[in-house]
Computed example of a mutant assay.
Amino acid sequence: MEGGSALAQFVPLILIFAIMYFLLIRPQQKKVKQHQEMVKALRRGDQVVTQGGLIGKVSKVKEDNEIEVELAQGVTVRVVRSTIAQVVNKTEPAK
């Protein structure tokens, strides 16, 4: 009888972990994956918003995890790719 009651004590713990996985962990992993794909697909001409709130146009995509963003005419800053929060306007690939 003690073996069954020990198992019954762990069932609520297992259920709580399963609920936490499906409500918190799994959606967060999906969001991270979507962000990585978005950042990987950045190209010249895309209008982006950084996590700091700066809006600009991608002027150059570098290989070393950086991009150059033009904030205003003649004002270009280097930005780490992972700090791009969203892409506002996507450009079409050149034919």
Rank of each mutant, 00 (worst) to 15 (best):
Y21K: 04
Y21E: 09
Y21Q: 05
Y21P: 00
F22K: 05
F22D: 03
L23H: 04
L23P: 04
L23A: 10
L23V: 14
L24D: 03
L24F: 14
L24A: 08
L24Y: 11
L24W: 13
L24V: 13
L24E: 06
I25F: 13
I25E: 06
I25S: 06
R26M: 09
R26F: 10
P27C: 01
P27V: 01
P27D: 10
P27M: 00
P27Q: 03
P27R: 01
Q28G: 05
Q28M: 10
Q29E: 12
Q29W: 10
Q29T: 04
K30G: 10
K30Y: 11
K30N: 13
K30Q: 11
K31H: 05
V32A: 14
V32R: 14
K33A: 11
K33T: 10
K33S: 08
K33I: 05
Q34R: 14
Q34T: 12
H35I: 06
H35Q: 13
H35W: 03
Q36E: 10
Q36V: 07
Q36F: 04
Q36G: 01
Q36T: 07
Q36S: 07
E37N: 15
M38I: 05
M38D: 07
M38G: 06
V39L: 02
V39W: 00
V39M: 02
V39Y: 01
K40G: 03
A41T: 08
A41C: 11
L42R: 01
L42M: 10
L42E: 01
L42S: 05
L42Q: 02
R43E: 14
R43P: 09
R43A: 11
R43C: 04
R44C: 15
R44K: 14
G45Q: 06
G45N: 07
D46T: 02
D46R: 02
D46V: 00
D46A: 02
D46E: 04
Q47Y: 08
Q47S: 13
V48D: 00
V48C: 02
V48H: 01
T50R: 00
T50A: 04
T50C: 05
T50H: 02
Q51G: 15
Q51I: 05
Q51E: 15
G52D: 12
G53M: 05
L54Q: 11
L54A: 10
L54Y: 09
I55P: 08
I55Q: 15
I55Y: 08
G56V: 03
K57V: 15
K57F: 02
K57S: 06
K57Q: 15
K57R: 15
K57M: 15
V58R: 00
V58F: 00
S59M: 07
S59V: 04
K60N: 07
K60E: 15
K60Q: 14
K60P: 00
K60I: 06
V61P: 04
V61Q: 09
V61R: 13
K62L: 13
K62T: 04
K62Y: 12
D64Y: 07
